[in-house]
Design a protein around this nucleic acid. Structure first.
Lengths: 114, 114
DNA sequence: TTCTATAGTTACCACGTGGAAACCAGGCCT
DNA sequence: AGGCCTGGTTTCCACGTGGTAACTATAGAA
């Protein structure tokens, strides 16, 4: 694990604030922009656009525009994006069983910090 | 996966720049500050201290000070920290087999971007 | 008293991410 | 001409992370 390790690319990719939530929101099939926005509570349009563009750039989501009226834009996971669900689930599983311990540790640490 | 999901805590923890490298550096046993610094190339003392303190706060690494001359300080993974190696390896495995695809996707995307 | 070694700390700064609020574009509908 | 709908864009800003460089603390050894 050196400084330019491929894991670094991936960890920074999935470690950002919205990536995991967006990927989860798309795991059951294509969704429109406003549907993703509703599913991922708290995200602003600007940031959602940024995140989706970035995921599209990385080949994790695909964007399709349908020339209807009004215009319809769908986002879906690519096969690469779907395969990302596997390690993401591993992290989620660990998180669900250990996040409590982390929070306890933080409280204990902060309590001692004079 | 809501906004205050435990996965978020964990993902932001392992998604930062130095956490995965430090954890890897400690996976084979205790190391001193300067040994970690040497193992994790490119980290400055300030940032290493910050990262180690933060990992200590989260109960992932433990810090031991030995009153020798000169002083010796050792860092090691706690059991919690060792269990973190599992999802970290899952991510690493995914990264090693898919990082290339991400980089290709980026180049392709950037090439099209007029 | 000065040098050495370890393990930091301090002050300052640059950058990127993310957020708030307002605005924009295409196109049918009335 | 004005309104509505989706899917954004634009501007401006606050904050946290990370980086540089220099400095500190402790204490034995020369």
């Amino acid at each position: 694990m050196s400084a330019d390790c491929p894991s670094r690319v991936v960890l920074q990719r999935i470690g950002d604030k919205w990536t995991p939530l967006i990927v989860q929101a798309l795991k059951d099939g294509p969704r429109r922009f406003s549907a993703v926005r509703a599913a991922v509570e708290g995200v602003t349009p600007k940031v959602l656009t940024q995140s989706l563009r970035s995921l599209e750039r990385d080949g994790i989501v695909a964007r399709s525009v349908y020339a209807e009226v009004p215009v319809r834009v769908e986002y879906r996971l690519t096969p690469l994006g779907e395969s990302l669900l596997v390690p993401l689930d591993a992290v989620r599983a660990w998180a669900e069983s250990h996040a409590g311990r982390i929070l306890e540790a933080r409280e204990a640490f902060d309590a001692v910090a004079d």
